[in-house]
Design a protein around this nucleic acid. Structure first.
Lengths: 305, 305
DNA sequence: GGGCGCCATCGTGAAAAGCGATTGTTCCCG
DNA sequence: CGGGAACAATCGCTTTTCACGATGGCGCCC
């Protein structure tokens, strides 16, 4: 009794509307005999006739049983087209995407991704969430921006090598680049020891350089204000420097370090083996594009004397 | 893209719940390979994978596309079982039935039908409507009680021959039966000229008997009150006499007419060639039974001296 | 690394879907 | 009143689909 076929219900609806098996068949692209058999199959599965066939040119009429079937059948068909439409919308890029980020990561890339995603898919539902820096997790996120390796079963693309730069008060250091060991014992303001920060500081240690961290905060503006105030210098990734516009601040000077500290790697992560939604796939493309644009900008900026 | 099959959606739901193609197959009574092909067909029709298959013993997981499909798919499946349940209820006799009647017709039979129908099918929805006596029409009614032939494409069963009796004030006539011609010129109170009434009066005329109709009303109680008040006699069908309990009224006397006037025929009508709902079919059965019981009662009543 | 669990694929037989032709009804018009 | 028109049911027939069992490939875990 549950061998109900949407096709049969569609045929039934067409017959009801056309008043004739033949016209319904024409509308559906079937032959009359096919529709006849479809209705017969439907009648078998509901256990009784759904149409009265008066014979001759008079239109067929629905039976009481048919009315019951049709009433529910129409809803079923409506739900079926709703499903099809939802799938189409999804394939066209609408839908929901959950993106995770961390403070100070991708403050430049993520806005570009969001902007372009919203432009391309006005109906899409973008949710951003900021993860705890101590224990960044993919969880149910579709994508997660992060600047280091991530536990769990995760795949990623590297978006950008984000080199560390020295930001100091004007006049603190001279020259475009500063020898690394000039920072030994020097006062530094820095981020808390999350994300890439511990790895970066280990790089200092490995190089035998031990700066004196006199203040830690996650707030970039606070950090730069402290630098301006002479509290110390800061070693920040280019992305953070760039985002804060520190290069164009008269009271600050941005130096390279020599030798350079291994850059942090901005990566975009997702759970391994998961099929992406079109939206997520596009988001990755955009992020990669945007990052490569930034990489070009970065190269240009630091090759010109 | 619209070659969507409920079976495939059911398979998908089962796979989601079981986390495995094989277990889903076991639950549905299919083999694993069948479920695999069903999911493959579904994926073909929605244009993308609905499950990520991690391989090995890890459970399959739904993709974003799959989530969209499943969300709508579950609704579809729910609607499908709702349809099946509605059909079952209908076949069991629930549902709606529209019965038409006319004042003074079936005041005895119809209550029996309603009572027994409600007893047998507590969930059924019985609608009664009283038609205009001048132009009784089947319209959208399932069944129509009427005491004469009906225009349109209609079938019927005769429920009862309802003989006309003379109801007179006690002492007006003597004897069990009264010769018809005693009514020539006699004062009569009568129903309006609707339903069977014109045919009945023609029977008088054909017999050369011309009573004087001094009052017409459709109200049986009013009619009998007038008889009691001496306004005249009444020629009423047995059913009406019986329903009013006139036989047990001391101030009235019920006579037969000799020769008898052709009885009115109480019929139950329905549109020709229409399949009945189980409820309507049962209603007809009950009406026929009830009428045959009444016919027995009638015969008994009038054979005893 | 071998066994185990899992899904995909292949080949096969059975079921059905769909088609064209034909038959059987009913109505309508001449 | 009889022939034609309109319509649905039915009959073979072909093609597609369905479901199955067997096999193969892949990823875990002992």
């Amino acid at each position: 009794m549950n061998d109900l076929e949407l096709r049969h219900l569609a045929a039934m609806a067409a017959v009801t509307e056309e008043g004739s098996f033949g016209r319904a068949a024409a509308r559906l692209g079937y032959t009359q005999s096919t529709v006849s058999q479809q209705i017969a199959a439907l009648e078998r599965s509901v256990g009784g006739p759904v149409f009265d066939r008066p014979g001759g040119p008079r239109p067929v009429r629905i039976t009481p049983l048919g009315a019951v079937v049709l009433e529910h059948g129409r809803e079923l068909l409506a739900k079926a087209v709703a499903l099809a439409e939802a799938v189409d919308r999804f394939q066209a890029g609408d839908g929901r995407i959950d993106i995770g980020t961390l403070q100070s990561v991708s403050s430049v890339i993520l806005p570009v991704v969001v902007r372009r995603l919203r432009d391309e898919h006005p109906g899409c539902d973008i949710r951003l969430s900021e993860e705890e820096p101590e224990a960044p997790q993919i969880g149910d996120l579709d994508l997660l921006f992060y600047d280091g390796p991530l536990g769990g079963d995760v795949e990623h693309v590297k978006l950008l090598d984000d080199p560390y730069l020295l930001v100091a008060g004007r006049g603190t250091f001279s020259g475009r680049s500063v020898p690394l060991d000039r920072l030994d014992g020097a006062p530094l303001v820095a981020w808390p020891a999350t994300c890439d920060q511990p790895r970066m500081e280990e790089a200092f240690t490995r190089a035998g350089v031990n700066p004196k961290v006199v203040f830690r905060t996650a707030g970039n503006e606070t950090l730069l204000s402290m630098v301006r105030a002479g509290m110390g210098s800061a070693v920040l990734p280019w992305l953070a420097v760039h985002a804060a516009g520190a290069e164009h601040d008269d009271r600050l000077r941005v130096h390279e370090l020599r030798p350079a500290i291994p850059p942090r790697e901005i990566c975009l992560h997702w759970r391994a083996g998961r099929t992406h939604s079109p939206l997520a796939a596009r988001a990755i493309e955009i992020a990669v594009e945007a990052a490569s644009g930034l990489a070009g900008e970065l190269a240009l900026e630091h090759s010109v004397p």
